[in-house]
Amino acid sequence: MKIHLKIWRQKDRQTKGAFKDYTLEDVSKDMSFLEMLDTLNIKLIKSGERPVEFDHDCREGICGQCGVMINGIAHGPLKHTTTCQLHMRSFEDGDTIYVEPFKAAAFPIVRDLKVNRSSLDHIIASGGYVSVDTGQAPEANSIPVTHEQAEAAFDAAACIGCGACVASCKNSSAALFTSAKISQLAQLPQGDKETSKRVVKMVYQMEEEGFGHCSFTEACQVECPEDISVLNIARMNYEYNKARLLKK
């Protein structure tokens, strides 16, 4: 099928970007969206143009490295699907597709569709872990965790850190990302001991990185590849308020 593309091209953070038009003639329905971009890039390289830079790695929806705005939606039209798992069968012959990078002040553009999402790492680094050194762990079955607890913790832990929640948020908030980690660890006996310390540090870091606030439009969950629940944000707020109120 024939596809018209309007792709955001931007040399670097300082330079102004703009859409550029491309047309691909032989796009197969079985191609993934990124394979379609691969095809475009080979064409561009051969015609002496600079290929489109975009982020991707595992191409099976788990590493979280890919992610662009496709027709104004993070990861494109399918819900709960990463860009790499989106296939061209989701589009029609003759469609025009707009491709833009995730935009947020905390995600500076590197080039074209590539953005720097280190701010998410910084949030985790500020406290998104259990403080246990190698060697300190007790026998695994000495900490029983019920099936329901483990499943609930997993639901939150499934986050792939792609940043679609931030891109989909009208306030560019990283609340879903941050709360997923807080909520996962708060639901497990191993992690709960540090919850109040953790939540204060991580929320502070989230603000430091320049993310916006959460106003519960719930768009993040709808576009999240892993369908992480917005209730995690409520849980983060609960833990945060509790930590603040009970502060000694």
Binding site: V130, V132, A137, A140, T146, A153
Partner: peptide, 13 residues
């Protein structure tokens, strides 16, 4: 397994 569990890895239970 001990180490991973202590880190909060949500293994099946």
């Amino acid at each position: 397994i001990d180490q991973a569990v202590a880190q909060g890895v949500p293994f099946g239970r």
